[in-house]
Amino acid sequence: MSQKVEEITPVIKTYAVPYHIRKQLKKQSKQSSGLPFRSLLSQAKRSLITPPQSPQLLDLKNPPKVIRMPDENKQLLRFCTVCASNQNRSMEAHRVLQENGFQVKSFGTGSTVRLPGPSYDKPQVYQFGTPYDEMFKELKQQNQKLYTHNGVLNMLDRNRQIKDHPEQWNKQKDIFDIVITCQERCFDSVCMDLLHRGAKLSRPVHVINVEIEDNHHEAALGAQAILEFANAVISSPDPDSEMVDILSKFQKTHQKYPTMYQLCYF
């Protein structure tokens, strides 16, 4: 893996060999048989050059900083996407981030998984943990035409290729560096849950909300916006310090998705 370190190479001219040492070297070259004066001088120069340990030495404002590359950040940072039912918005974002090489998981904050049913007041309700495949087969058997028309079968087919079943946020015990919620209600649930857990694991986590409407079209657009945000995070040399700047830039370019942010602990 490539790494860039700001290297500071001192200029040799600034560390000239003092006169008394030159005199000693001349004497030495005359006394010793093989080594000429020039080679002794270059050796002395090398020995005199001290590495720049303090910033004052080279008149630098800050000590040299280690710059981390996006690929390293991608491996280091663990992302998580959260929506209500872990079906549409979080799963689309999960898919997009995973395809782009991010370490990502997804969860839902609802009490049950609710899918659109034959009418508004008759949603299809499943428990978290029911495999996507099972839901797909059941709904296909019930009314293939309806669930194909409203996009539910297509969505479940995508989901079962990503993971086995929808997972509930409250029951998960993994640790993430960045949690991205897709609805303010989910953001509130995640923050409250982290607060109720008592922050016993001492691991900081950035919780970010990107408000996305719950339909297939908006979920696809929102996932692309989340990918842009994730790319901005991993491109930053210090994501912790620059998170506010990254979010304000994101908000400027994506005014359609109002953001929320909190720094919590697991």
Partner: peptide, 19 residues
């Protein structure tokens, strides 16, 4: 004000107050 520092402090302080 640095918002992440404020957010972190509020969260740890409230956890402390609750426990």
């Amino acid at each position: 004000l640095e918002f992440p520092v404020l957010s972190a402090t509020v969260n740890v302080c409230v956890a402390l107050a609750v426990s």
